[in-house]
Design a protein around this nucleic acid. Structure first.
Lengths: 228, 228
DNA sequence: TACCTTCTTGACCAGTAGTCAACAAATGGC
DNA sequence: GCCATTTGTTGACTACTGGTCAAGAAGGTA
């Protein structure tokens, strides 16, 4: 019960555990982040604890707090590292035409979610209210918007188009997350639908804020009535 | 320092604070939930603590834990109570035509977010990874889908259409949350865009899973190339 | 060897979620 | 009016976990 701080010299042997060897700062930080990303496949990112990461790495909890001042910082680093991979996979295929690059991107996104369904669900919805995590979310979504901007070949996006692109990205995310639960329609039809949706929505989105109110093409209210 | 449990009779006076009077179980539970909803306007729902609610209600922390076994249960009750109001506001206007009901619903949603921008952002994205909270999220989204199903006048939705509706809802949410930050386009144009998007997407969605692959209308890949 | 820098440790502390035995306000006979 | 039972309520207590810090070990350098 009486465990007073032993001010000197009561130190046990080296105790070289798995990752316990001395590493330089960057290597250690990377190692801890990697271990966190590993853990995030099983545990939602907002439930990763410094203690857990420390145990998995074979180091002391204090060391983890040395590199990540708060648990949130650790979680944000894990989150950022995870989303970086997704962004990297979406931005390929630079030579093709915009419409084809878009299709490739949608396929890559579906593939990514098929690989880590639980993990992506946790990072997409299990963000929590932490400002740092929300910032990563924002960065990621902005990153996807920027990939689309480059695919479109324009230096900047009109406000209406930017809003529509963000909305469309959310639609893709939600559709795929819901689809992956039980695959109720063929995969290629889902992809085609989302691709087609982008092609249809963007021209109208450009009209937003430009004075003209959705002037292009037909829009028959009756198509929205299944009883007809 | 030595505060041993006084096993008998050391109890101070009645101490009737604001809400400290004896209430029957249902009334007390409702009161605590209401206070939680109040708090949720300032604090993200996943940061509401039993202690805080207890203080605001003028009762002991133990009492809150009597009604809500865990802090999560409290937060989920708050969340559910909040989203119930939103659903109630979206499902009105039963007499109008489907397309008009849709428009009314979009307007109601935009109005709701304009009233509680921070609160909605926190509940939409700050859900966290708690299973209970995710369940409320699912219930809410399913509720909106059902409102649209009734507006369409059909007893059940084809799989492809259900996916598309969920996707469209996510698009509306994301677009409006982004729009409300700085209102870069006129409100009515945003609403018109989202309305038009639904009218355009749903017919194509119905084709999903029905064998035919997006057969209706024009789809020119060139419209997706701003350089043209 | 002595010295310095940098990485690492583990005892400790603080705050908070959750428990529980006891208490008190109503309620219902008698 | 009084006693017994039920049920809402309390607050001291415990357990756990995020975070601190003084001290030490490992490696480099002269």
């Amino acid at each position: 019960m009486v465990l007073l701080n032993p001010p000197a010299g009561t130190r046990q042997g080296p105790d070289r555990r798995a990752g316990g060897r001395r590493l330089d700062a960057d290597a250690r930080r990377d190692q801890l982040t990697r271990i966190g990303v590993e853990l995030a496949r099983r545990v939602p990112p907002d439930q990763i604890s410094a203690d857990e990461v420390a145990r998995a790495a074979g180091v002391s909890k204090g060391l983890v707090f040395h590199y990540f001042p708060t648990t949130r910082d650790l979680q944000v680093a894990v989150l950022r590292s995870s989303t970086a991979e997704l962004l990297a996979r979406l931005g390929t295929d630079h030579a093709a035409a915009p419409s084809d690059r878009l299709l490739t991107g949608i396929n890559a996104f579906v593939a990514y979610i098929e690989e880590h369904p639980a993990g992506y669900l946790a990072t997409a919805r299990g963000i929590g209210s932490d400002p740092g995590s929300m910032e990563v979310f924002e960065e990621t979504r902005a990153g996807v918007v920027d990939i689309m901007r480059r695919a479109l070949g324009t230096p900047e996006l009109p406000a209406g188009l930017r809003i529509a692109i963000r909305g469309w990205i959310a639609m893709v995310e939600e559709s795929v997350l819901h689809w992956v639960e039980d695959h109720p329609v063929p995969r290629d039809q889902l992809v085609a639908f989302l691709h087609r949706a982008a092609l249809d929505l963007m021209p109208q989105a450009m009209a937003m804020g430009a004075g003209t109110l959705v002037p292009t093409g037909p829009a028959d209210p009756a198509v929205f009535d299944l009883r007809s």
